[in-house]
Computed example of a mutant assay.
Amino acid sequence: MNCLNCKTCESDCQLREVDTPSLFCMNCTPSEAPCLKECPNDAIEVLGGAITINEEKCDKCRQCVDVCPIGAIHI
């Protein structure tokens, strides 16, 4: 779930559970990205210097979510 329970948006919240994992991150260098190292399905990929999730490979195990240092991954 992506909701932060901040209560700011109440019923109009845009951060609800999503069916499609999302990520386009340039915070970590690919060689140091914990999500890329942690993914058991090799679903975390590098695209033009950004780290992304290959939706076809992702089984939504959330291991990448647990290791992301900035909370950028939403599944």
Rank of each mutant, 00 (worst) to 15 (best):
S11D: 09
C35F: 04
S22C: 03
G49L: 12
K37A: 09
C68Y: 11
C28P: 06
V65H: 11
R16A: 15
A72P: 00
K60V: 04
M26R: 11
E10S: 04
L15P: 04
N54E: 03
K60I: 04
C9V: 07
C64N: 02
R16P: 07
E55A: 13
D19P: 01
T8Q: 14
L4E: 14
P30R: 02
F24N: 12
I75G: 00
I51L: 13
G48R: 06
H74V: 05
I70E: 02
C35E: 01
I70N: 02
C68V: 06
D66I: 06
P69C: 10
V65L: 10
E17M: 10
E17F: 10
P34Y: 06
F24P: 01
N54T: 02
P40V: 01
C58H: 07
K60H: 11
R62A: 12
L36S: 06
C39T: 03
V46E: 15
P30F: 06
P21Y: 06
S22E: 03
M26W: 10
E45H: 09
G49Q: 14
C13L: 13
D42V: 01
C61Y: 00
I51F: 05
Q14T: 11
N54Q: 04
L23R: 03
Q63E: 09
G48V: 02
K37L: 08
Q14R: 13
C64K: 01
C61D: 00
A72M: 00
C3K: 12
N5E: 14
S31D: 11
D59R: 08
E45L: 09
A50C: 12
D66E: 13
K37D: 07
L47T: 14
V18Y: 13
K7V: 06
I75Y: 00
P69D: 09
C39H: 03
N5V: 07
A72I: 00
T29A: 03
P21G: 07
I44W: 07
K57V: 05
A33V: 05
I53N: 00
L47K: 15
D59F: 11
P69A: 08
E38K: 10
D19Y: 05
A72F: 01
D59K: 11
Q14N: 11
C13H: 15
G71N: 03
K60S: 09
C39E: 00
I75S: 00
C3S: 13
K7M: 12
P30S: 04
P34G: 02
K60A: 10
L23C: 06
N2Y: 08
C39V: 03
C13F: 15
T29W: 04
C58A: 09
M1W: 01
D19I: 02
V46H: 12
S11M: 08
C25S: 10
C13D: 15
S31C: 03
Q63L: 10
N41H: 09
C13N: 15
P69E: 07
A50F: 14
N41C: 03
L23I: 05
E10M: 04
C25M: 06
D12F: 08
L23G: 01
T29Y: 04
N2V: 05
C39G: 03
A43C: 08
L4K: 14
L23H: 03
E38I: 04
N27Y: 11
P69S: 08
L15F: 15
V65Q: 13
M26G: 09
A33D: 09
N27Q: 12
R62C: 10
N5S: 14
Q14K: 13
V18K: 15
V65M: 10
C25H: 06
E38V: 05
P40A: 00
